[in-house]
Design a protein around this nucleic acid. Structure first.
Lengths: 334, 334
DNA sequence: TTGAGATGTGGGAACGGTCTCACATCCGGA
DNA sequence: TCCGGATGTGAGACCGTTCCCACATCTCAA
């Protein structure tokens, strides 16, 4: 069933060293021997055992992705799913496979798991607990962080310039004439939501049009449902506020809010403009399609892998924070 | 850095056999020895090497998922992402990790890859090429198919009862008074789309209300864009047809069509009812939320893993086709 | 008193590769 | 003619576990 290098050697009448040489392509091999061995390999459809290889080379060519989430779904999450895809794509190109795990419990189960599997490196996504990061740091396995933050020195951080995105949103909304914007702000414990709000306020202030605390709603979660629910709760206040636009700190919240507004027969963008942040696929498919600030996830994923690979291969790279500039995507909702 | 069992043995003043016994919990161990070894394990934060274990046990506790797709994204695909999540969730509970791959090229690269990694089993998703399946069959690695089909005997198939779903859609639409339904049919080479259309036609015939060929549009792809595009193309024909409802063979198509209709200021469901199939998350978040036939993906994923695990553990199970009944979800769009 | 079974521990082969070293042969220039 | 390097091949250690077998000691019934 599963042939080994030994079996190939036996059939070719050579030693396993020779077979190994044929496969790896290094060392001297006579053309005749090579041909013979290769033929037997083809015949038996021999597949080298990646485990055995990993054992001796101390490289599994597997990496781990740990995402901060209370639970699955990860993949079908509109934002994390995209990150995962960008990593998967880049990983395949660089000949890595990936294990995915959520960090959920108080224990370091996800990290232990990856460590036992002897992944070559780790990608930590979103606001993982400092405790977990310290734990991982301990094991000196190469890792980097995407969209998260920590105080640990000498670690790569790939982050979106969320504050800049917030300012871009402000500039744009002011630019098309909105003076009175209602803000749906996701959990402020989350770096992204915090910075997006901060940037937005800064932007509005720059235009001599500060956001009053009364026109900000703080949400408990950054989901569609929460966006919908909050919009519903704030509805009276919102109506009396003469607001002409809504800025949500992510697309899902914006979509939830829009959904409620549409139920109230509010015309978008005529009566109220709506704007999100993230650039998830679904935002483009909604009607009206959502104006948003798009995070360059593809590039982050690609670079995360390039950088991690360098760390793994011990190439000298100076760890630092790399920032990505988001992009304004104007659609129908404004 | 990475401690080995040998290192633990050395420090505890015992043999590696003894350490192995402590870890595995089998065999005789004196309480004193156990305590001592366990303490050193804790101190050094020793993590057993899963590779070495897999080598000897011939079990990696990894499984592979191969999805038919021209390319990534997989994860952020609304339907495949959900399948993936359900598998991920079930896998974690059963102590498996999963590798994901797309089958894209003519070569059997994806299968070779999984085979080299020595996965314990494979889950094949959607309409993979027969050639690939034969290839995998050859290697007698346990596998099963989700939402696909093949003629190979003795293979587990987990499929949704798409024809039944089609009939349910017909029953429902007839039930709420629609007599003239326009159908957006996804690629008929795809088993699901084919059966959904078939079931729908059967259902309509049963109600003495057959679907005329002229009120079916066959799409080249089952995407939002294609749904939108086709709706646009068929728009004139559609208007003249006095249709009161649309049935699409999946949710993304339905959403695309709805989006176009909304652009044309068609009121849904007052003027036209729209119905999809799949039960993806987005469908619930759209406005108006989409009535659909929901596929029981969670259950399929869970059972796929249970069944695969049994095959892996060589438990006697008779391979067969397992069918899942879909569920009608009534929402705002009808 | 004896020996069979329970209890506790260690030695070493095996899993399937890679890689270093040793060794044999061949060739061409001094 | 001789020798050094290029060429070609094999033996065996090693990666970090598991597990079988051997061996030692202790206990208790015959």
């Amino acid at each position: 069933m599963d042939y080994t290098i030994k079996e190939i050697a036996l059939r070719a009448g050579v030693s396993k060293s020779t077979v190994s040489r044929v496969i790896s392509g290094k060392g001297y091999i006579s053309p005749a021997t090579r041909e013979k061995v290769e033929q037997i390999i083809r015949e038996l459809q021999y597949k080298p055992n990646a485990l055995a290889r990993a054992m001796v080379s101390q490289r599994t060519h597997n990496i781990g992705v740990i995402i901060y989430r209370q639970e699955y779904p990860i993949a079908s999450h509109p934002f994390y799913g995209k990150i995962l895809d960008s990593i998967l794509t880049a990983a395949e190109k660089m000949n890595y496979s990936v294990f995915v795990s959520t960090d959920r419990e108080m224990t370091h189960h996800s990290a232990d798991f990856m460590l036992e599997k002897r992944v070559d490196g780790l990608i930590l996504i979103s606001r993982l607990k400092q405790q977990l990061i310290d734990y991982i740091q301990n094991f000196k396995v190469p890792y980097l962080m995407v969209n998260g933050s920590t105080d640990v020195e000498g670690v790569f951080h790939l982050v979106n310039r969320d504050d800049m995105g917030g300012r871009m949103a402000a500039d744009y909304l002011i630019g098309i004439g909105h003076r009175n914007v209602f803000v749906l702000a996701g959990p402020q414990t989350h770096r992204s939501h915090n910075l997006r709000l901060k940037g937005f306020r800064e932007g509005m202030e720059k235009h001599m049009n500060p956001v009053s605390e009364s026109s900000i709603a703080y949400l408990a979660a950054s989901t569609f449902e929460e966006g919908y629910k909050t919009m519903k709760q704030e509805w009276t206040r919102f109506q009396s506020g003469l607001c002409t636009a809504i800025f949500a700190t992510n697309d899902m919240i914006a979509l939830g809010a829009m959904s409620f507004l549409q139920e109230q027969s509010v015309r978008i963008p005529e009566q109220v403009g709506v704007m999100g942040f993230d650039g998830i696929d679904y935002a483009a498919m909604y009607f009206p399609s959502l104006t948003t600030i798009r995070v360059n996830i593809e590039e982050m994923g690609r670079q995360a892998l390039t950088l991690l690979d360098k760390q793994i291969r011990q190439e000298p790279v100076k760890a630092k924070t790399i920032e990505y500039e988001p992009e304004l995507i104007i659609r129908q909702s404004t």
